[in-house]
Amino acid sequence: MVEERLTDGRRIAQFLASEVTGHEDDLGSLVVTDADADVEPTPDGAFAYAIERRPAGGRRTADEQRSDEGSTERVASVYVQPDRVRVEFERAVDAVADAADEAGLRVRPKAVEPPRTLVFVEDGAQVKWLLSALGTVATAVEE
């Protein structure tokens, strides 16, 4: 039996990005943007990339979407810490909190205006647990 766990924050962030871009069905409206390929983890969390939602329609690459000014909205930001990833959700924060909590992830509200939900992903296996929260924000009704 394999006892290894993926607990490197940078690797977890890379795995999460590949899950977002690789799920054409449930997460087809999400795209990774503003990625910092050279991000170095910090204790407070270094910005790694944004997750944006595109309007209904065909899936396009991140470069194509960036060229369409105003065609996407940021729904989450991903921050890399040495031993985990912090995903800061900006949309559908209550529904995301419920979905992530039900999946067994550590969730915390962020008391800012507008409110945000923080979800902590502490190993590679938990990336799969985050998919339900990402699905929630991918299909959330425009506010």
Rank of each mutant, 00 (worst) to 15 (best):
E19K: 06
E24G: 11
T42R: 04
E52D: 15
R106P: 00
Q81W: 04
V93Y: 02
E88C: 07
D68A: 11
L30I: 06
I51W: 08
G70Q: 14
D101E: 15
Q126C: 02
V119D: 00
E19F: 00
G45T: 01
A48T: 01
A35V: 09
H23D: 15
L131S: 08
A35L: 09
A48C: 08
E64V: 07
V121E: 11
A56P: 07
L118K: 03
D98C: 01
V87P: 00
I12A: 03
V20W: 02
A62D: 12
S71Q: 05
V121W: 13
D44V: 01
A48F: 10
D26E: 15
D83V: 04
S132A: 07
A138K: 02
W129T: 03
G22T: 11
A125Y: 14
E19H: 12
V80E: 06
A62H: 09
V39R: 06
V137W: 08
A99R: 00
A13R: 05
R59P: 15
L130N: 03
R54H: 13
S29N: 10
V75Y: 09
A13K: 05
G9A: 01
T7Y: 03
E24Y: 00
E40Y: 05
A50L: 08
E24C: 06
T136Q: 08
Q65Y: 12
L30D: 06
A125D: 14
T21H: 10
R53W: 02
L30A: 02
E4L: 07
V96H: 01
A125N: 08
G28D: 02
G28P: 09
G104N: 02
T72A: 14
F89Q: 00
T21A: 13
A125F: 15
A48H: 07
R91S: 12
Y49L: 01
A133F: 14
E142W: 00
G124L: 06
V32N: 09
V39M: 07
D26H: 05
P109C: 09
S67D: 12
V20P: 01
E64T: 05
T139M: 08
E113L: 12
V32Q: 04
V80A: 12
A100Q: 01
G135V: 02
